[in-house]
Nucleic acid binder design. Structure first.
Lengths: 150, 150
DNA sequence: TCTTATTGACATTACAAATGTCATAATGAC
DNA sequence: GTCATTATGACATTTGTAATGTCAATAAGA
């Protein structure tokens, strides 16, 4: 297998990897009352604490309008609530409710256990190389794409 | 960075990698008259020769009904044509036209050059490890997801 | 031959996400 | 402090990818 073909392979394995990962997450959500997109919001909030809709959009790298829809869902389900934002009157902070906190903690715990089962035996060094390589490819692809079209 | 977090990172870098790769492909298609999904079909045909719609679907791992739509596009654009299939009366083989052949060859050549610019300096060994790791993760995620739900 | 599977063709639905728009409200420059 | 600019929420529309559903015609296999 030559060099170019190897790079090609690595790049295009990203799609099946992503699909497999998302399917696994979806599977783990069964019966929790969460959808994948609700989970994405809860994870952000669990990791970084309460945030505004535009903040969440930025972290998820999607448009704020779409995040609004997600938040509508999580609010309706009682997993999040709007709390006053000291730094902004209109733009409330979105915070986990107690129920939401408990749920996302449990979901993330289960995912952690899955990760352990799945990759517990992969050598640290190889994971590090993999991560580094993927990140380099991402950075270079991005800059090549943006080249001369800012 | 602990082990689990490393695996987590690798898995979730697959989405940005895929997005960056697709954006790069899209960029390279500008002005060619090809869309991303037309390109996918032409690539399959260029690699494996003429094939039926269900064959193509299987290789792309998507439903045949969706491939039909792609083929409609490529036929309409004159990049592919239906030729008689010795092994099946109704299910014609989809083949590249001369124009299609020339176009996909050129597109793939340009992509190859981009790959060279992007990853030419990545060590073979690291690429190999990356590919292996990604494939292991895919396989394990898949089997974990299918577990007890065949 | 007869039953079953495959195929093409077309319609419907689902989902993620982008984009468009508007009124309101917050911020920053002056 | 006023005024222009920007940010936000709320809602509507559109796009792209793909899955699903359905049906008639046809091909393959028992």
């Amino acid at each position: 297998m030559n060099h170019l073909h190897q790079i090609y392979q690595v790049i295009w394995q990203s799609r099946p990897l992503m699909q497999a990962a998302e399917a696994a997450v979806e599977r783990g959500l069964e019966g929790s009352g969460l959808t994948v997109r609700m989970r994405a919001v809860l994870e952000i909030l669990a990791d970084g604490g309460a945030a505004t809709v535009p903040d969440i959009a930025q972290r998820l790298e999607i448009k704020r309008q779409y995040v609004q829809l997600m938040i509508n869902d999580t609010h309706a389900a009682g997993f999040t609530e709007a709390v006053p934002n000291p730094r902004h009157q209109r733009s409330k902070l979105i915070a986990l409710t107690e129920v939401g906190q408990r749920l996302i903690t449990q979901v993330m715990q289960r995912e952690k256990e899955l990760l352990k089962r799945i990759g517990g035996d992969l050598p640290d060094g190889e994971l590090g190389i993999t991560l580094k390589t993927m990140q380099q490819l991402i950075a270079r692809l991005k800059s090549a794409t943006e080249e001369k079209t800012p």
